[in-house]
Design a protein around this nucleic acid. Structure first.
Lengths: 160, 160
DNA sequence: CGCGGTCGTGCAGGATTTGAATGATTCGCC
DNA sequence: GGCGAATCATTCAAATCCTGCACGACCGCG
């Protein structure tokens, strides 16, 4: 091994996180989230609101606490998200009769329609994505995302 | 087509953005970014700092303005990022003699080492990712990310 | 030389999220 | 059956992050 000077370091293959999956996944994902947020503006929602609706639709939740765990956010944020969704008539807060500390969040028909609209927006993004991505790779990406998200509708947040 | 009541809607296949690539990509990416941020804490860096270093290493930039464009952030944020990196000795600000309004950001050897450490951290995340992802799918994910990021080291930010 | 435009910078403000404090309620345990 | 500890939802203040705007320095053209 020879001591390398700055010039020689520059000449070697670049050592950057751009070579890693995780870094680029983060880069792309953050951008995608931001893009989705702007497209969602017309519905008066943010991606987090949609995520909450998803959990409600796909598995339900006993309490806001559980919801917070599933979404990977603080319980106090769930309060804010639920406030907004309730104002829009997308959900209803119902005191759990069995445990009156808990609020059961119930998806309304309005909420179901809102979720369908949000899905529409995401589907539109998928189409745009498909323009720069061969079908085979899109399918592969799909499968990889399935694996990483655990394929259980439970986990919306990050694994680990 | 029959008018469906709430009950029947519940019984049909769920219509949610969880079926789309873009939504899950955003979900996962945001989580990955957050995870990388915490792992990066020891180095005193955030993912944005690393992204800036990446651009500098991979293609360089004539000005902070250009950097802002490549990173997809406001020029005033580049100032903050560069401030922090300069304090850590990772970069040097050099007035461009040809145009004294511009600052040339030069990567120092310290910056190179820091970037290598950040790469190390990302590589570690990749390994953890590989645990829940078959090798074939990881490769496919890699290829898809390449496509979506344009494979040019230019664009760090989101396409479009 | 002077004028419009560009660059970097400082700063105040908006948005987002968290953690601690509070009050209501429930549960374990005696 | 009752009391203390734990749990839930909520509020609030604070931290963080990022943007837009204003300002001063500087460029180039007429």
């Amino acid at each position: 091994m020879i001591r390398r000077g700055y010039r020689e370091l520059m000449a070697t293959d670049a050592v950057t996180p751009m070579g890693t999956v995780s870094f680029r996944l983060g880069l792309l994902g953050v951008a995608q989230d931001a893009l989705y947020a702007t497209r969602l503006a017309g519905l008066g929602l943010k991606p987090k609101h949609v995520a909450l609706l998803c959990v409600l639709r796909l598995r339900g939740a006993e309490s806001q606490m559980e919801l917070a765990g599933l979404l990977g956010v603080a319980p106090s944020l769930v309060v804010l998200l639920a406030d907004h969704l309730e104002e829009r008539g997308a959900i209803q807060r119902v005191r759990d009769p069995a445990d009156r500390r808990r609020q059961s969040l119930r998806l309304t028909e309005t909420g179901l329609r809102l979720l369908a609209s949000a899905t529409e927006v995401a589907a539109q993004l998928d189409e745009e994505l498909a323009l720069s991505l061969p079908a085979a790779e899109q399918a592969a990406l799909n499968a990889a995302l399935d694996h990483l998200l655990g394929r259980a509708p439970d986990r919306i947040s990050a694994p680990e």
